[in-house]
């Protein structure tokens, strides 16, 4: 069984690039378009990793992190933040909310893959 990754981003093109990168490396990918969508998917399925954007409508990535920690089924799932935000304060906020890694967009696919490999 290949590992299943949930990719959360409001940008369809970013989602597509992230998904393609991960799928090419043999992962299975489910996409969600914002935090609310992601939570819905997390309730129905178990994932090995969550890759999430920060700035999104409906529910942003940091709030999503906090919600994930409340879910019994997902609270131990590692979360990698993939975002254009590079401000330290944001990163710290992410860390406190439980993010395991922080990658800044535009990202290099190889870097993403190595980060993912480390977390899974």
């Amino acid at each position: 069984m290949s590992k299943e990754i949930l990719v959360v981003d409001d940008s369809a093109s970013i989602r597509q690039v992230v998904s393609m990168t991960l799928q090419d490396a043999g992962y299975r990918v489910t996409e969600a378009k914002d935090g609310v969508d992601a939570l819905g998917k997390l309730r129905g399925q178990k994932f090995n990793l969550i890759v999430s954007d920060v700035n999104m409508p409906n529910m942003d990535g940091i709030s999503l992190l906090r919600e994930i920690k409340k879910l019994d089924s997902a609270k131990f799932t590692p979360v990698l933040m993939l975002t254009t935000e590079s401000e330290e304060s944001k990163k710290m906020e992410g860390k406190q909310a439980g993010a395991k890694a922080w990658l800044v967009k535009p990202f290099k696919p190889a870097l993403l893959l190595s980060a993912v490999a480390k977390l899974i």
Partner: peptide
């Protein structure tokens, strides 16, 4: 704006 910026850099 933010999404356009992010995706544009990516592409």
């Amino acid at each position: 704006m933010h999404t356009i910026k992010g995706a544009a850099g990516m592409f």
